[in-house]
Design a protein around this nucleic acid. Structure first.
Lengths: 240, 240
DNA sequence: CGCACGGTTGAAGCGGCTCAATCTGGGTGG
DNA sequence: CCACCCAGATTGAGCCGCTTCAACCGTGCG
């Protein structure tokens, strides 16, 4: 019954078997989506809430001058935007980064889950809390960190999130991000991202290539980033 | 019975009289706090949820190098951090900017309110949605906007939020922010904030002095900021 | 084969920072 | 009532991190 979604939520609240099967059954409507396809675009009338089951996606907003700012990365088990169904119109877009499996929960189903009991409801609140923490950490990065610190911090965040869902080894995980995507996430130029990655590589701190991240010196990477993982509130995923 | 808090929430969901009086009664425990005092500090064990009834506050995080990043401004009617009671330890601090009246709702009371019915619960969800939207807008500002655009955008945000709670006239509102505070919010230097404010003043766009904001040319200000107020989901406050 | 996309590198410019000094107004003690 | 004080505002000069513009390279794919 369990999937990436129920595993993640059970890290937030002690879900019973009934809760898990309710949540899993809510994920019956799954779509397979290739890389680079939009789940929803700015201005669309949203209805279903999207949940990532496999693959990566990101939410972003375009600016009048053609620039793009990425607002969040969505990994397996994540809600794409838990509030989506409350809006009249999307104020940002969501696009897949890799091929992905996405569950679609209609608004009514979300409401049913919330009202199904306090445990699921509590897990949803935790999920929102963590999402907000991540947004705050991004603000801190963009406001007060240098280019190198920012990129190091993003890599730490994504690595730990991957590790928390069991998709990382001790020093490595998938990281299917192009330098352009990283630039749009941290508010830098692709050119400068390239130079920073080079310096991290030459400094034997970490290496990003062919879609995966290798952490060479975890202590130094965390020091550069000023990284403290507690804000991600990760739990070891449930076994079995 | 109504106060800043119930007025704000009733913009998010159709609260009945019973809901309003429940919420108002939850705000019985009010503290008056002078300017510059902490409601809670990083590392503290949080318990009560704070709600601003009068005055301004801000949440911020200190960085190892002594820098400060402000994460949010709290105005009358706002939750300081609706998730606060779920945490084991605060990961940021909250300090008053002006003298303030703050209601303190213990964890148990929050849970009781959530379970009191779907309307209050829905209003809380909306409140979280709006808070997230604001965080996202800050990320966009810090990632992709110039200093002038960023400051203009922040002024627009705060002006509209003040207007939405009935605390602004057509072209003016209180804005008790020092240039240092603005700098810590938008990720700039106080010196540079000063220069930008000067240029906005000389350009006859807006003027910030002695604790209040005067918008001279609203159209140009919004154009500079690239501001679209819909993300704040403001409703006219209830009358009576 | 050749195109397209992503990565890499160099050179020059600029926006915002640093450092440092001066100014201003409101509050305070004598 | 005045001298003083201090936080916040203001201004100048020089520097640096990141951007811009413009190439060139490598590789997967039609």
């Amino acid at each position: 019954m369990a999937n990436a979604f129920t595993n993640r939520l059970s890290g937030y609240a002690p879900l019973g078997d009934a809760d898990v099967s309710l949540l899993a059954r809510a994920c019956r409507n799954v779509r397979e989506i290739p890389a680079g396809h939009h789940l929803i675009m700015e201005g669309d009338k949203p209805d279903p809430v999207f949940v990532m089951l496999e693959g990566w996606a990101c939410g972003y907003k375009m600016l009048p001058d053609g620039g793009r700012q990425i607002l969040a990365f969505m990994l397996p088990g994540d809600f794409c935007d838990i509030h989506i169904a409350m809006l009249k119109a999307m104020d940002h877009s969501i696009v897949t980064i890799t091929a992905a499996k996405v569950a679609m929960l209609p608004r009514a189903q979300m409401e049913a889950l919330v009202e199904a009991g306090p445990t699921i409801s509590r897990a949803f609140w935790w999920s929102q809390l963590v999402d907000q923490s991540v947004l705050r950490a991004w603000i801190i990065s963009m406001g007060r960190r240098t280019a190198k610190e920012r990129i190091a911090h993003l890599m730490c965040e994504l690595y730990i999130r991957m590790r928390n869902i069991g998709l990382a080894t001790d020093d490595k995980c998938e990281m299917p991000l192009t330098q352009l995507v990283i630039a749009d996430a941290v508010g830098l130029t692709p050119v400068h991202v390239n130079r920073v990655l080079k310096s991290l590589r030459l400094g034997k701190v970490m290496e990003l290539s062919s879609g995966s991240l290798t952490i060479i010196d975890p202590v130094r990477l965390a020091a550069i980033a000023g990284f403290d993982e507690s804000y991600l509130h990760g739990r070891l995923r449930q076994t079995g």
